[in-house]
Design a protein around this nucleic acid. Structure first.
Lengths: 196, 196
DNA sequence: TTAATAAATTTAACAATGTTAATTATATTT
DNA sequence: AAATATAATTAACATTGTTAAATTTATTAA
C-alpha cells in the first residue's frame, strides 16, 4: 500500500512540474489541461485521476512557488544584518521575484480561488507572505525601539498593500512605463514607509 | 448618412448597456457574447457587426463607469471644503464605489488589456483616476503649505498604490475577513499617508 | 409598385477549453 | 493463465469566442 502511494505521488508530481513549467514560462493564461498533460506525458483525462480539477493542480503550485521564493529570498538575506535595511532588501527581492515570473504574480494575487478546496488557508498564505519573510527584522526594529508596536503593525500593512498595488499596476497596466521608473517608485515608496 | 450613424450608435448602446448591466450585476466572469446579445435583444453574431470583439465592448464600459463614478464622487465632495480631509472622503468614496461593484474593480484593475485598441489611453485613465478626483484638494494643500511639492507627489502615489492593494486583497482574497475590518484598515492606512 | 440590390440579422459551424463517460490497455491476483 | 482490478485513453459534451453561409429586411431603380 505504501508503494501505491509513492507511485501515485510520483505521477502527481509529473503534472505539478509540468504546470510549474508552463506558469513560469508562458504564464497563467497558457495553463490548460491539454498543455499540462502533454508536457507530463499523459492524456488530458488522466489528470482527473490525480486531481479533482485543474484549479486544485494550479493551487498546489502556489505553495510550491512560495517555498521556492522563500528559500531564494532568505538565502540572499542571510548575508545582511537583521533590521530596517534588510526589510528594504527583502521587499525588493520579493518584488523582483514577481517581476521575473509575472505568471506567478497572477497566480498569487489575481486568480480567483472560488471553489478551491481549502481556499482560505491558501489565501492566508499569500497575503501573509511578505510579513513572514520580514518577521525577524520587524522584531529587531521593535527591540531596538526604532518603531513602536503600533507603528510596526501599520507599517507592515502599508508595505504589503502598497507593494501589491505597485506590482499590480506595473504588471497589468504598464504603469510605470519602464522597469527603471518602476524601481525608482519602489525605492521611493519603501522610503516613505520605512524612513518615517 | 447622419441617420445611419445615429441608428448605428443606438444599437451599439443597446449592447453597451447590456454589458454594463451584467458587469454591475453578476460581474466580469458572467460577461459573454451570448449573454450580452440576449439581453440586448439580438443574436450573438450581430455583436460583431458593431464591435471588433468582446474586449472592445468591455473596455468601452471602463470609460462609462469611470464617468459614472466621477460624477457620483464629485457630487458628494461638493458639500465639503477642499483640502486634506476631503482627500480622505474622496478616497473612501472611491473605495466604496468599487466594493459596491466588484465586477467594475475587476474590469479596471484585473482584466488584461492585451490586444485592446488604444490600450494605453485606457490604462492611463485607470491609474490616474484617483489623482484626478483629488487634484483640487492636493493643490489646496500645496497652497496652504501643508505639504511640499515632493511630499505630495509621493503621497499621491502611496495612496494610489496602497488603496489598490487593499482593494485587491479584500476583493480577491477576502483579506481582511469582514467589511468592518476592511474599513478600519482603510482608515488606518489613509491616516498613515495623510497624517504625517 | 415591384423587381433587383444592398444591408442587417441570424443560424450553422469551428476552434479552444474543462470535464465526464465509455472503452481499451495494463497490472495484479487467484 | 484466466479473472479481476487498476490505470489510461479516446470519444463525447458543454461553454465560450469567432467567422462564414444563409436568410431576412430595407432600400433603390425600373
Amino acid at each position: 500500500m505504501e508503494r501505491k502511494q509513492i507511485q501515485e505521488q510520483r505521477i502527481r508530481n509529473y503534472f505539478i512540474e509540468a504546470t510549474r513549467e508552463i506558469l513560469k514560462g508562458e504564464g497563467l493564461k497558457s495553463v490548460n489541461v491539454r498543455a499540462i498533460a502533454e508536457r507530463a506525458g499523459y492524456s488530458y483525462a488522466t489528470l482527473y485521476n490525480y486531481f479533482k480539477d485543474i484549479k486544485e493542480l494550479i493551487f498546489i503550485c502556489v505553495q510550491d512557488f512560495q517555498k521556492e521564493a522563500e528559500i531564494l529570498i532568505n538565502e540572499k538575506a542571510l548575508s545582511k544584518p537583521a533590521g530596517k535595511e534588510r526589510i528594504r532588501e527583502i521587499a525588493k527581492d520579493y518584488i523582483q521575484y514577481f517581476t521575473q515570473y509575472p505568471g506567478i504574480f497572477d497566480l498569487f494575487f489575481l486568480e480567483k480561488m472560488v471553489g478551491i478546496s481549502g481556499k482560505h488557508p491558501t489565501a492566508e498564505l499569500i497575503y501573509t507572505f511578505l510579513d513572514r519573510l520580514t518577521e525577524n527584522d520587524w522584531n529587531t526594529c521593535r527591540e531596538l525601539n526604532l518603531y513602536s508596536e503600533d507603528q510596526i503593525l501599520t507599517m507592515k500593512k502599508q508595505m504589503n498593500y502598497s507593494i501589491t498595488g505597485l506590482l499590480l499596476m506595473y504588471m497589468n497596466r504598464m504603469h510605470p512605463q519602464s522597469y527603471d521608473l518602476f524601481i525608482r517608485d519602489v525605492d521611493n515608496q519603501l522610503s516613505f514607509v520605512l524612513d518615517k
